[in-house]
């Protein structure tokens, strides 16, 4: 190394330090966030070690003995009686709500976009956003009240001369109740993201299409849909990244002893194994597994989308 390059290097690092010291306040601004992420995100990542251990609370995370073989907790899960059921239920709920939950907001946005009256548009938009702000507990409480034996749905069925149905006892419609209550809650909200994209559709293009004799429906297919495709793909990739992550919150509330066969998903199982049965290692292993599957899905879909359509997260 020559003398001068050494000197520029030194002065470079010197400059850097000067800059850091001059901007010390910026680092102070970052400090709370850094501390927060260390406690709430990075420390738990270290705790993931117990997925490969036979955790013993007295010995702590580091002191607990390694599982033998190291993947024992994972094989334990696959050999457990609930493995197949939870995986199947998770996949059904995830794919069902993924398909319905990504397509319907697009349809709603396209429909609302065709409305000419601004006032009517606003009413529909604001009305469909409201359910998003209802809590999960209230949502499930409403499902139970509405679909119960003497709930309003059955009253309406009877009004039309039908027989009342015990919806909540029917395991075959658990998935439908889960997904469509989610549709009620999230479709309006999910459509917001598409309005910005739709407003980018050039008016000239529409007018040219009209002159060429295109109907409104044709214009939707050939102008509006292409405009929202990039946004749609981004939503698709993000959805894929949490596909297997059927949250425990809502399912847990909808669960009864009678419907476990269709309602026990991986995340509710993780909760029960971990905090109810206190098998910490097994619970962590299952959680880790889903985390990896999600990450793999995200990376794969992102990659595929990047090559096929030029749209990707990064």
């Amino acid at each position: 190394m020559t003398d001068s390059s050494l000197r520029t290097r030194q002065s470079n690092s010197h400059k850097k330090w000067n800059k850091i010291i001059r901007n010390w306040q910026l680092y102070l601004f970052l400090l709370p966030a850094v501390v927060y992420f260390i406690i709430f995100n990075y420390a738990p990542m270290y705790g993931v070690l117990i997925a490969f251990k036979k955790y013993n609370p007295g010995a702590g995370i580091w002191g607990s003995p390694w599982a033998d073989p190291w993947y024992k907790n994972f094989t334990d899960f696959f050999h457990s009686a609930w493995a197949l059921t939870t995986i199947r239920n998770t996949l059904i709920l995830a794919i069902y709500s993924f398909i319905v939950g990504t397509i319907l907001p697009v349809v709603l946005a396209l429909m609302i976009n065709e409305v000419r009256s601004v006032a009517f548009k606003k009413i529909v938009q604001n009305a469909t956003y409201i359910p998003y702000f209802v809590s999960t507990v209230v949502l499930v409480g409403m499902v139970n009240l509405f679909f119960g034996g003497s709930g309003v749905i059955n009253q309406i069925i009877k009004l039309f001369g039908g027989q009342s149905i015990l919806f909540l006892m029917k395991n075959s419609i658990f998935d439908d109740l889960y997904v469509w209550s989610g549709v009620w809650q999230g479709t309006g909200w999910g459509s917001i993201i598409y309005f910005a994209a739709l407003s980018n559709a050039s008016p000239e293009l529409h007018e040219a299409a009209v002159i060429d004799g295109a109907s409104r429906f044709q214009r939707i297919i050939h102008i509006n849909i292409p405009v929202i495709v990039p946004t749609f793909i981004i939503m698709l990739i993000m959805g894929a990244g949490s596909l297997i992550n059927v949250g425990a919150e809502k399912v847990l509330l909808m669960q009864t002893d009678m419907n476990l066969e269709v309602s026990e998903v991986i995340n509710t199982y993780v909760y029960k194994v971990g905090l109810v049965k206190t098998n910490f290692s097994l619970s962590t292993a299952i959680g880790l597994l889903t985390n990896f599957i999600n990450m793999a899905l995200l990376l794969t879909v992102n990659k595929v989308s990047g090559t096929v359509s030029d749209t990707s997260l990064w």
């Binding site: 420390a43 270290y46 705790g47 990244g241 993780v270 995200l298």
Partner: peptide
């Protein structure tokens, strides 16, 4: 993209 999970 990565979290420790419930128990950790």
């Amino acid at each position: 993209f990565f979290s420790g999970g419930l128990i950790p």
